[in-house]
Design a binder for these strands. Structure first.
Lengths: 215, 215
DNA sequence: GCGATTACGATACACTACGTTTCGATATCC
DNA sequence: GGATATCGAAACGTAGTGTATCGTAATCGC
């Protein structure tokens, strides 16, 4: 037994929801899959993503860091890609904020979102997965719903604003959400231009000018 | 000699501008580097990027497609990354359009830009390079200026609008440009949501609402 | 308890691509 | 015509992939 200490886990597999990227479901008899190993693999994946980035990430490296055999990883994920998708799914997403006004909601949410980019390897994961999904339909199926779900708090804030009459009811909320996160995505991913926390207010204000109903 | 037919090229190296990703400048004597090989390599790189994407792109594959030895590639580019950056630089960029109004300029430019994504492997190249630049400062130095220069027509259109008084003179043009391209980037790269040509008008109108001076 | 079953970490394997180096041949400069 | 640098081709060591197999360990059904 290695560095992973195993506690009694009962029926281990039932402890987590299927992620659709698990390679196959194990039979009911025999030794259950180690939940500790599973989490150690995901943790090591995220840590290495932050340290070396996506393309330099190797399954061998993850196995070594997690104190796990390579076969244990391949038993659960078919390749590096779905593994990273799963690890990505474990990263914190946008936290909803309901402060009473759309502008304030957005500013709070985006400020805390920017912090996530400093704490997590989000900036390394997102563009890497995006570049793969174009040529891998199977990956797109895994990745797209996870991604869209991550920005749902943004859409919820917009829906509240519609209910309050802050924005027009016939607004395309999906497009509006893209308008809000677009500048951040462009700046963070495609160029090295840092985003200061104090830049959030003008960004939101500029986006809102186009979204809010004319006063 | 393979499929590359070599014409008389004179001093080959002087025919193209240094791209800063050339590995080293050759001395003045001896056989000059083949300009045909150079172009064949870049063409093959772009073709393969479109076919198999970035991560599945191999230098061996490029050499084979270009009818060139691997050493010929490594003599000019240190690795796959700067090669792709150079090939990326050869892709067509935004075409400036000066129609008299900002809204019209943007709509024309973005519509033709969308066509580029259907004709070129832009969607495969951009996120891939973006994900690498975060962990490769040398790549960032090559990539960032090329990328920023590619959207300069957008900024020029905004400057014309400022001169015409269409938008406020104290507008942050850089941020405004991000607001315009942001939704397109998010939709094209991070999700599979296609962008119809008829969606350009509402996108521009929504962005402009925040950018244009209140009427 | 006890045997059947399954996962465990470790290791060996064939395979592929990388990036380097060597080769004889070829093209250009001086 | 000699010096020099590039050419395409091929071989090389290195590293990671994904599979298979080892003996061990954990859980189930009985």
């Amino acid at each position: 037994m290695t560095k992973i200490e195993r506690a009694a886990t009962g029926r281990a597999r039932s402890g987590r929801g299927a992620t659709a990227s698990d390679k196959d479901v194990a039979a009911s008899a025999g030794r259950p899959r180690s939940e500790e190993a599973h989490q150690a693999i995901l943790d090591a994946t995220l840590a290495l993503l932050g340290e070396v980035g996506f393309s330099a990430l190797t399954v061998e490296g993850v196995a070594g860091r997690a104190g796990v055999g390579k076969a244990t990883i391949y038993r659960r994920w078919a390749s590096k890609l779905p593994l990273v998708v799963d690890a990505f799914g474990g990263l914190p997403a946008l936290e909803d904020a309901d402060t009473g006004s759309l502008a304030s909601d957005l500013k709070v949410m985006l400020r805390s979102y920017l912090e996530l980019f400093n704490k997590t390897p989000l900036a390394a994961v997102l563009p890497a997965l995006a570049s793969e999904r174009a040529h891998d339909p199977a990956l797109a199926e895994l990745f797209d719903p996870v991604l869209l779900q991550r920005r749902s708090p943004l859409v919820q804030a917009l829906e509240r604003a519609v209910a309050r009459g802050e924005v027009s009811a016939d607004l395309d909320l999906d497009l509006a959400a893209d308008l809000i996160v677009g500048p951040i995505a462009v700046r963070l991913f495609f160029t090295g231009r840092k985003i200061q926390a104090k830049m959030v207010d003008p960004m939101v204000d500029m986006a809102l000018g186009g979204i809010a109903r004319p006063r």
